[in-house]
Each structure stands twice: as C-alpha cells, then as structure tokens.
Design a protein around this nucleic acid. Structure first.
Lengths: 378, 378
DNA sequence: TTGTATGCGTTATCAA
DNA sequence: TTGATAACGCATACAA
C-alpha cells in the first residue's frame, strides 16, 4: 500500500484509526474534548500567537500592529518600537493564509514549467528562486509536462490563490490558458521565447534565430549534408528546426531526409539512437545540428563507439551550451542560451509591475551566443 | 532598474504612479470609487463566485456545498447533483486561503531541497510532483542552497502556512531545524538518506554503503591505487567517502593522498580539473571513484584528451547512474540510486500519515544498485 | 442528512 | 497617526 506507485490513498478517506502517530496525537491536544470549562476559547488553532496577542501586549490596536509590520513609516516611532518588541518576544509570525484572505492577494508567484529535470527549465527556475529568496514572496511551482491541458488545469488551480504574479514557460498557450492568464488580475510573464502578442510581458530569445545561426555556422564551416536531430519537439524545438531549415534552404542544401525528429523525451541515449537511425537513412551525412546538448552528446558518443571522426567526418552542434560541452572530447559547438538570466529578469519585471511601474519594454529579448568549438572546426 | 540584479525594488514601497499597466487598471474595476450607492457590497473581492453563491443557486446551505465538495458520500445523491451542477455553471473554485484559514491546515506540501539543478534532487522533486499531481495538495518548494541556515529560514517561513506535510532532504538538520520540524505538527519525511533518529519518517539509502560497494567493486576488478574525487562534499558525499575509505582500509589500500575533494559545486568541467590535479599529485593512480556522475564524466573526458586508456590504465566509477553513463564511450560504471522513487515513496508515506495510518516502518531503505560497465572492466 | 451560529487571523474602510 | 468595525470565504461544532 505504501508502494508509492499504483493505487493512491483516498484524499479525504475514512481517516482510519489514527494510531499514536506523532502528529496525529498532537492534534488531540486542542479543544476537541473537555467541553471548555470557562471560556469557549479557540476551538482549534495551534496556540501560535496572533496579531491580537501582540496588540494586547503592546497596548495598541490590532490594525496598528498590522501597519507597523507592513508600512512601518505610517506608525509613530514609539509605537513601532513597542510593537516590534512585542512581536519579537512573542515570536509572532503573520499567518499568510489569513493575510491572503483579508487582502485578496497572496504573496505568491505562480510558476509554470513543462519539466523539472530538463536543465534549461531547472536553471530558469533557479533564477526565479534566487531572485525571490529574500523577498516575502513564496513560489508555487507547477509542472505542465509539456501539456497544454495540464497547463490549463494548473492555471485553474493557481487562479483562486490570487497570486501576485504568474510566470509561464512558452508563448503557445491554449486559448483557455490565455483567458485564464488574462483573468488572473496580476502581472504575467511568458518566458523562454519572444514573440508577438504577449499576454502581458515576455522574456526570452528567438529560437528560430538560434536554429538558423547554428545551421549557418555549420554551412560556413564547410559542412553540406547537415542533418537535424531533435527529440521532444516542443514548440521551441520546432522553431529551431524552422530556423535550421531556413538556413539550409537559403543555401540550397535542404533535404527533408536530413531531418530526424521524435516526440519522445530527450536524453543522451536517445541522441545516440536517433543518430544511428539518421546515419542509416542518410549515410552521407557530414554534420548534425541537435535539438539540444543531450542529443548532441549522444551523437558524440556514438561517433566514438563507431569510430567516426569528429569534426572531420561529422560535425556536431548542440543547443543550450551545458557546462559539459566545453569539456567534451572533442569540445562541442553549441548555442549558449540565457536561461538563468531569463529567470532573474522575469522576476524583476514582475516585481516592477507589482510596484506599479510601467515596463520600459513588454518584450525583452535576451539573445543567445554561438560557441564555436572543436566539433565543427573542420 | 529592471536589471534583474543588484538593487531590488522595495516590496511594500511607495507604489509609484500606477500607470496604465494592465492589471493595475483592472484593480480599479472594483469598489474603490463611486461610494456604493445601494448596498455596501463587498468592498474588494474579485467577483469570483463564492460558496454562498453556489449554495443560493442550488437552494441549500453553504455548509452542504462545502461537504458535497469534500465528502461527497455524506451528502444525498440529489443535493450532490444539484450542487455539482451549480458549481459547474458558476465555475466555482474554492479559495484555498479561506479554506486553510478555516481549517487551520493548508493543502500544501512543503519541500526543501539543497539544489534545483542537481539532477538528483530534480528527479526526487519530480517524483514528488508526479505523486501529488492529481491530489488537492499544492507544493511549496524551497531551495536551501546546501545551507543549514537557509533551511532554518525556510522552515520558519513554511511553518505559519500550516503545511499538510514537510519533506526535507538530508538527515543533518541543525538543532533549530529539528525543533521547527517537530513543532510543525504535520508528518515530516527526511529523504535521500537513511539513518538513526528520524524526526518522523525517512526514505533513502545508505550513502556509506554505496561508497563502500563502489570501492569494493574496483578493488575486486583489480585496481589498487584508487583515488576518490569529490566536489561539493555535502554530508552525503562525506559518507560516500567514508564508505570508500572503509573499503580501501579493509583491503590495506588506503592512502590519504588518494583523496581529492573540494567544497566547490560539482560540474563536468570541475571533474576534469580535479582529475588533472589528482593525477599530478599521484601519477600512479590506476582508478577513481567519483563523487557523482558529473565528476566521472569530466574524468572520462580528461582521459580522452590526455589519451589515457579506460579501463586499462584508469578505471572509473561514478555515482547516481545518470542516463548518459551507459551511453558514454566507454560506458561508465556507476551506482544507481532510486531518486525518483524516493520522491514517490516520501509522498506515499506522508499521505498515509495524513490519513492517520501508522507507517509499517518509519525508516525505509530503498537501496541502490551497482551498474558494472566497461569503465571498470579490466 | 442538513442547517445555524460562530470563529479562523488578518486587512480594508472609515471615522476620530 | 490610531482604532472600532466589518468583511474575506470557508469549515467546525453542534443542534435539528
């Protein structure tokens, strides 16, 4: 039953015999029995001090305590000192739930990403966390699993929380998701890509240009039969492919058989497999532009296994420029993307909007940078 | 100012001229001006339907709606149908903040991990998300950055939210953190490691055993001067090192100069560097057990660069068994760790505890598995 | 099985 | 600058 997979316990289910499990027992400490002898004091509540306790101790009204904490400058020096002392002494911490209920705004950033393990999003999320770590804002992270429906569902869950801001990956929201984002009544930042018609704000770069730049580089380096290998093929990958295709067509080199894609999630081992398939299909391949660095690494390893010379026989270009690409043997050319900075910037923009500032630009393009390395140095 | 770094805008600051920014404008739609002509209807509130609206439409009491949603079996078929219809029609979604305030329990899992980009934790977190995705529980993720103080701070922030459960990485909490965890009044699961004296529950495996197993394998394979290379050196890495040392000492092979560690965060490029340093220090090294797979991959690449034969001249063993290890050239021996399953299991245990079930075992050891590959096949 | 009264801890409103 | 009062939206306790 505690197998972790398969059947899940019911959420509200018959709470069984509540054993002497630690916290279950601690629940009984509160007002449940004994029929309150004197005052019907708070039936539940965990004994934590409330704003009223602080107010009493400081000899002021509750609202003044509230103000002293949120807008110190609006409370006189004297009272502020007293209040802060009482807060300290009692160890008072405001209840975020009560606060959200009363103010109709939670100090929460909703963040929606398609994957938690893909380094690209992990880095972006890290940027968001780092930027918010010493702010009062919490983060509500949602994993859409690259699914528009999941995204809608999560947005529906996030909405009622009245988040202070929403950060979502991508620009291809479903109509329903767009409506939900617009109805959220808070700043919205679409990240990873730039594009027309932002819901509110955008931070990212052009994946089409990234793909084109990579392909152009390989063409310039002398490669001609350059394949495209892509896994997952989410909208951004599709645009990288489109950029690759544009470059290839401009050079009169495009051939549909050069393209190998799959909706299967990306991985190094998949990269190796796809490359073998591509090679079987087009033995005269002399280069590959990969969807991302994992795929590129898989290609590189297959070249080693099959004793294919890199960059002589096959040139390789990746995407994202993970740390390992510069250390690989040979080092691998890749397109460096500003994923951490995208996270930072998205928060900065949301924060500015929350503060009522009008953004200088609603759409921020952070660009990318081609890193030329040995794998394409013919 | 929107630079994303450096000075941050004040959180409560003078909200400036609130421009015609989209959401700022939408705020004005509500009761602020016009001095309510008829009834002083809700001053704030975003017009979203409340439980009272549903109750009215369904012709029942609010509490019945509440029950119909949380414990459907306690409401008659008829009413339930009517209520659900009204809910649908109105698009009613319960306010989680109000719910948390009223019930003194938020449907939130607090999750504390030391890193968001380290694949190990990313996988664990993914397991947690997957297990909770179709439950009513939200996830509050905190990044401790491998700092005990950060952990304390985050726990202090999580506490007042009254989370339904807390999942924290590691078993080396500071005394303060332990106190906070014990005072949380909810199930607590320490993950990644097993050990004595759990705060409440634990899911993981023995890193000491993992390190020892890896070292023993290399010794059996015929390696003698086996180095240890470790980055970050968090408590778990320390224990892996201890396991390695135990095995080496048991075989009479230990030498302090074989150990190369650094508190610097792990990366493939760092692995390469550390290995060069180790080799400079101990040229007769014939094998290395790495802290993790990133380091191992860096070692492998350096071997390629320096034309060192693997596994002949140098044997390599990694830790965690990332997908790429089996594809690498040569494939790399590694210790497979159940990180995703740890995430799943931790949630299952927490959920069971929430349901009042007594755990069969408070400490669950999910073990690990040594994957023998070419890199140690002498 | 259903409803009534009340409280959860905080902030908005408005008057002092 | 400060405070009394009334929400905020929902769930608990208890009665019917």
């Amino acid at each position: 039953m505690a197998s972790g997979c398969g059947s899940r316990p019911g959420w509200h289910g018959d709470s069984g015999k509540d054993a002497e499990h630690r916290f279950a027992a601690s629940r009984r400490l509160f007002g449940v029995g004994e029929k309150a002898v004197i005052k019907p004091r708070s039936r539940r509540g965990g004994g934590r001090p409330t704003i009223a306790d602080v107010a009493r101790k400081a000899g002021v009204g509750a609202i003044t305590v509230s103000r002293a904490l949120r807008e110190p400058e609006r409370v006189s020096e004297d009272l502020r000192r007293q209040i802060l002392a009482a807060v300290d002494e009692l160890g008072y911490v405001p209840d975020p739930n009560a606060r959200a209920l009363a103010s109709a705004r939670a100090e929460v950033f909703g963040v929606l990403v398609p994957s938690l393990t893909n380094n690209v999003f992990a880095e972006t999320v890290r940027g968001i966390y780092d930027s918010l770590s010493d702010s009062p804002f919490r983060i509500q992270l949602g994993n859409t699993h690259y699914s528009g429906l999941e995204e809608e569902r999560l947005l529906q869950v996030f909405g009622p929380q009245r988040p202070a801001a929403l950060i979502v990956a991508g620009i291809d929201q479903t109509p329903t998701s767009r409506r939900l984002l617009e109805a959220a009544g808070c700043p919205v930042v679409q990240v990873m890509e730039t594009g027309p018609d932002p819901v509110d704000m955008m931070v990212g770069f052009s994946h089409f240009d990234g793909g084109r730049t990579a392909a152009e580089h390989m063409i310039e380096a002398g490669y001609r039969r350059i394949g495209f290998i892509g896994a997952r093929m989410d909208p951004r990958s599709q645009r990288r492919l489109a950029g690759y295709r544009a470059a290839m067509e401009a050079a009169g080199l495009f051939d549909a058989r050069l393209v190998t894609t799959t909706p299967v999630p990306s991985s190094v081992s998949l990269g190796r497999e796809l490359f073998r398939g591509a090679l079987a299909k087009m033995p005269m391949l002399d280069g590959v532009f990969c969807n991302n660095d994992d795929i590129a690494l898989g290609v590189l390893f297959e070249c080693h296994h099959a004793s294919i010379a890199v960059p002589k026989t096959i040139g390789i270009t990746g995407f994202n420029d993970l740390d390992m690409m510069q250390v690989a043997f040979p080092s691998v050319t890749s397109v460096r993307t500003p994923r951490y900075e995208i996270g930072r910037r998205s928060v900065a923009m949301a924060l500015a909007a929350i503060a009522g500032e009008r953004p200088e630009q609603r759409v921020v393009d952070l660009g990318f940078e081609l890193k030329r390395r040995e794998s394409t140095a013919r």
